[in-house]
């Protein structure tokens, strides 16, 4: 499932989600973020209903980006049961991301 998430929705949509959530911190001016997009779309297809991919625009949602000390995008963070499971800085391949999801859901 591919969703967008804002500062005010972060608690309910990410922290309280019953499925692992991969948060993509991005912005319109970020070139490499565009490269991450099609990879996340493919990942989303493979995950089906086993996980959630949530896009968070850092321009519009500075509180969450600030809270997690984001200083470079794309940054991807995988949350599960309210915990940060993993963080990646820079564009990541589908395989790398999928492998982390696979550890959490079988």
């Amino acid at each position: 499932m591919h969703i967008t998430v804002t500062d005010s929705e972060f608690q309910t949509k990410v922290m309280e989600s019953d499925k692992p959530v991969l948060v993509d911190f991005w912005a319109v001016w970020c070139g490499p973020c565009r490269m991450q997009d099609p990879i996340l779309e493919e990942l989303d297809k493979e995950l089906g209903d086993k996980g959630v991919i949530a896009k968070l625009n850092v321009d519009e949602n500075p509180a969450t980006a600030g809270k997690y000390g984001i200083m470079s995008i794309p940054t991807l963070m995988l949350f599960h049961k309210g915990q940060v499971m993993k963080q990646w800085i820079g564009v990541q391949s589908k395989e790398v991301l999928k492998a982390e999801f696979d550890k959490l859901v079988s």
Binding site: W29, A65, S72, I89
Partner: peptide, 17 residues
């Protein structure tokens, strides 16, 4: 400190500064 203030791409990360 990569991504924590170290960057090789100003256009990507300048915003955070």
């Amino acid at each position: 400190l990569m991504g924590k203030g170290v960057s090789a791409c100003a256009t990507c990360d300048g915003f955070f500064f």
